[in-house]
Design a protein around this nucleic acid. Structure first.
Lengths: 201, 201, 201, 201
DNA sequence: CATGAATGAGTTTTCATTCAT
DNA sequence: CATGAATGAAAACTCATTCAT
């Protein structure tokens, strides 16, 4: 293993350890001491790779959410092409896929819940590398029901906010409603977001 | 002033001081020392009324949100009666009123942001005293577009989640969008939530 | 109930509560707050009857140990007269009786254990009212094997020390030896204390 | 000085400082603050080496008592061999030596007094490393007057209890009797413990 | 007499950060 | 690069004691 690989391995071990701990006890209640202990590296090493706890958090959310996000979009796009799905149905499909992935990765949900704002900013920031592609796809989907690209991005923002806050408790605690119980209403709202009829009186 | 009144006054002073500080610097960065200093009471007095910082936080959110919530509902109901508003329009009106109040009370928004889950649970818990009345009104509004009362509560849950997460950043940072910028889309989504047309293909 | 009786009742309630708590968690780890709460009196009332925690402790040990001490001596004396027991046998009998009482009052043992010094001082202080009579009897018993009264008191001191420290753990934890397991050796030592043969080479 | 040596030095400085303070004012009245100030280390360093005050206390008693215990046994054994002392005389010699050491180390006495039970357990626990050798010697001494090894250990237990509780007050306060004043009776009791004559009527 | 709210000095404990090795 | 011992400021929490009612 090269020096460069060893460095990466250490950083990844720190990220994994933090992932575990931040997810289960929250960022604020997790001491750097615990992270390095779980990662099996020295305390000083932490500061070699991260400015502080919150720097690590940001990097982690980025890495972890990218994978899941891209995969869900990949699946949704394939379905869209295979079955000529509408934008609304594609978004629902994407949502469904996302919920499925999140359901089996409670640690990530826990993280997102505690850090929704950073996550939202991330998705919206078109310039950002890692989430750029799937986010762009989503904007395009919402453009089908919006007058301008800017309006589409606003809808996307609302969609992401809704998704984030609705799902976290459902997945983590199942209270007050389970994900399955909320799906009909949630999908209905999403579909309505794509409806073009006037709602003003 | 009776002893009981003095006790209440002291507790309120602590709540007010914490409100101020939690809102401006966040709960985690606020030391109990600061709270009691601002409140002008002894440190021990804090522990006479609250188990810890988070106990105070819970009580505060309850108190503060009740006021703003009840007021918004009051206004919305008056408009509904005066102008025979539909359920959708009443909900929009309630939303508008709530956003207006929150816009001028950034400290509360800051609090809600950091504690959305507790707040959501609170609204949904019909048994809870303080938020019972306005929450019941909202359920009734959503019943006009839901098959069952249970479905209405789910829609309410989605609505509250949406509102909470959409607004917090908008109000606090104005980024990525200001409240005003998001209103058209937000209200549109809310109105669509009341639409009865099928959205399934 | 007269005023005077009410006052006494309060003091006794405090003593009983402290008895319970001191015995189970030790004096140092028991807060006055807990004592008054358990006693059901106001915090200020405590200071009406006791200077501080340790004042209460002293009074309590006195009261509690007097009863048990006097009773054991009473029994031992009766046996002595009935069966013309020797001083050694009377002391063994007294010891046996004491161990029996203590075995069923673990709270008191716990107290004595944590406060042996005060207790020893108490027994030896011939001037003290409550323990005077039984202590005097013990001195007399030891005088049968000592040259002077002063020597007898020293033997008594050794006896009390031995008894106190040997028994506490035995009764409370049964470790490393149970009271029953230690009795043969303990009684043997006590009997030897009364033996007059020279032990010097 | 190596890192490991420095660590040990720091831990010893803490132990020494605590020894000084615990001995003069008691464990409960000594704040960790004082310990670290006297030791000349930072507060955090304390928690690097000890869980809390009582953890330090336990470690300290072990270390301090081992030294004094082993030394007294060493001396007693030498005398035994030199003068062909009997088991009883060797034990008296050991006792004398121990009392002498303790008389000039009041801090340790103070400690033992407050923690006799832990100390007794320690001596009896044959498996324990540090006190194993001298304790084994004592058991052997008592075996000369006991039927079984188990009986010998019981006698040892009684002997240790007696010694501990008799001496503490004598050494520390000189009241009600000084060590010198008690020695005749104490030694007599010890010698009687080794006498084999029947004491039962 | 009795109360119990209020006090605040005192204590324990944590933890991000540094730096010599 | 990596380490982990050391730091000490800052935070949480306790509790004996007082005193106005």
């Amino acid at each position: 293993m090269s020096v460069e690989e060893k460095k990466l391995a250490k950083k990844l071990r720190l990220l994994d350890a933090a992932y575990e701990l931040f997810g289960s006890k929250g960022v604020n209640l997790t001491a750097i001491d615990e992270v390095v202990r779980l990662a099996g590296v020295a305390k000083g090493t932490f500061y070699l790779y991260f400015k502080d706890k919150y720097d690590l958090l940001d990097q982690m959310i980025l890495i972890k959410s990218e994978r899941i996000f891209a995969a869900a979009m990949e699946t949704a796009q394939q379905k869209r092409e295979a079955f000529s799905l509408s934008a609304a149905d594609t978004t629902v499909s994407f949502t469904e896929e996302l919920l499925r992935s999140l359901s089996v990765d409670r640690a990530l949900v826990s993280l997102l819940q505690r850090n929704l704002p950073s996550f939202q900013a991330l998705v919206l920031a078109g310039e950002n590398g890692v989430l750029k592609a799937p986010a762009e796809r989503l904007v395009e989907l919402f453009e089908t029901c919006a007058e301008t690209r800017e309006d589409a991005k606003k809808m996307l923002y609302i969609y992401i906010s809704l998704l984030g806050s609705v799902c976290c408790d459902s997945i983590l605690t199942g209270a007050p409603y389970s994900v399955e119980a909320l799906k009909p209403q949630l999908f209905s709202v999403i579909r309505h977001m794509f409806s073009k009829e006037p709602t003003e009186p």
